[in-house]
């Protein structure tokens, strides 16, 4: 659980997760292209995310594809939020998002 919090504490790593959330299964090259960072820097962040099980790697030939794995975050939520409460929290999160999206437009 510590590794999850540590991995999530970096803005760049959260950005990498956002990127994978909008487009899953990207290669290192594809992730670098948008981050404006060196391959080494991105690879280092990905290693931390992988160690926290927030990113899962699958091989396609020589390439490694990166997938967002939100299960550890759900496991943390399960620790402090009961099954039924979670539904209520989700409704509130949806409401917040809906209102914020509306005010954006």
């Amino acid at each position: 659980m510590d590794t999850v919090f540590k991995a999530l504490s970096g803005a760049t790593r959260r950005q990498l997760l956002d990127r994978l959330h909008s487009s899953n299964g990207l290669s290192l090259g594809e992730l670098c292209a948008e981050m404006g960072m060196t391959r080494q820097a991105v690879a280092k962040h990905l290693t931390l995310l992988e160690a926290a099980n927030l990113v899962v790697v699958r091989r396609r030939g020589r390439e490694k594809l990166h997938y967002l794995n939100p299960v550890p975050i759900t496991e943390i939520a399960d620790r402090w939020i009961g099954k039924y409460e979670r539904h209520k929290v989700r409704v509130l999160a949806d409401l917040k998002r809906g209102l914020e999206e509306r005010s954006d437009g």
Binding site: N24, G25, N53, R58, L65, Y67, N69, P72
Partner: peptide, 11 residues
């Protein structure tokens, strides 16, 4: 085909 979603949990 490459998967669209890959989820992992350690149990």
């Amino acid at each position: 085909t490459q998967p669209d979603t890959v989820y992992v949990t350690y149990i």
